[in-house]
């Protein structure tokens, strides 16, 4: 069975490239987790990373904002070029990189602070102190993350008091507040109920165009619904990458076909 995203992607033959991954190898100690990944992520589109557990899709996602740096004993070879800069070059400021490349985690992780302070955290870190300006950013981010109406009267309550789905949208708002160009999402809906999942997917559709979104998902229907491009990972290799519509209807690779038709994984 095949499902296709309900929006047709803009008909551009040569989409502008936001993230260019060239011959990327990644190691945890001696174990090589990613092998020679080459992939061009188009700007303003939603790219889904699919594959069975342990295939390296989350590891790959975390190389894009260098979150793997905080794990000891990891090593990267190859290049990742974002906005014409190699993000693993020695002169790269990781702080500026992460400001441009936001991340939403699998398990919602609101800070044990008020809703307001959760969203204001990033802007404050980057030096915004003016209260009115912070208020403006918080409101804009919460509106953008489609949670403003639910929380506008109780911005002072702890982010932990919200439901799981609301917490995840709060985390998306928090990521949007630092005004990134790219949004990485690591199975953002896997811990949520179907209704909350639906809202997150709607939100992704809304953010599409303004942000380049890379989303890891276990759920192939979700990948088909939300993404313009799909990358299939298997055992640390990028097996196939292309337009979602094509990957799900005419996969070039036997393994891809077996995976999306549910023969393994």
């Amino acid at each position: 069975m095949v499902m296709i995203g309900n929006q047709t992607p803009p008909q551009i033959d040569e989409p502008e490239i936001e993230i260019d991954v060239q011959n990327l190898d990644f190691y945890y100690g001696k174990h090589q987790a990613l092998h020679d990944i080459c992939m061009s992520v188009p700007k303003g589109m939603v790219t889904a990373l699919i594959g069975p557990s342990g295939c390296g899709k989350s590891t790959f996602l975390r190389t894009l904002n260098r979150m793997n740096d905080i794990i000891g004993g990891t090593r990267v070879e190859g290049k990742i070029v974002i906005q014409s800069k190699d993000i693993y070059a020695p002169n790269i400021d990781v702080v500026m990189l992460r400001k441009r490349v936001g991340m939403v985690f699998q398990k919602p992780n609101p800070f044990p602070k008020s809703i307001f302070e959760n969203v204001a955290y990033g802007p404050r870190i980057h030096g915004i102190k003016n209260r009115a300006q912070l208020q403006e950013i918080v409101e804009r981010s919460l509106v953008r993350a489609a949670i403003w109406d639910e929380v506008k009267d109780r911005l002072h309550i702890s982010g932990l008091e919200l439901s799981g789905g609301q917490q995840q949208r709060l985390c998306i708002a928090r990521a949007l507040a630092v005004d990134p160009d790219i949004l990485l999402m690591d199975e953002p809906a896997s811990a949520l109920d179907p209704r909350s999942t639906q809202r997150i997917e709607d939100l992704i559709a809304e953010l599409r165009g303004d942000y380049t979104i890379v989303i890891v998902t276990h759920n192939m229907q979700q990948a088909a619904r939300v993404s313009d491009y799909t990358a299939f990972f298997y055992e640390g290799h990028l097996i196939e990458f292309g337009k979602t519509e094509r990957i799900f209807t005419k996969p070039n690779n036997k393994q891809t076909e077996d995976y999306i038709t549910g023969r393994f994984g």
Binding site: M67, M96, L97, R98, N109, F111, I125, A175
Partner: peptide, 19 residues
């Protein structure tokens, strides 16, 4: 997840620890 959440927003290590 508190450390990761903060670092992912572009906070430095010390900002993350301190805040």
């Amino acid at each position: 997840s508190m450390r990761e959440g903060s670092l992912a927003l572009g906070a430095t290590k010390w900002q993350t620890i301190y805040k």
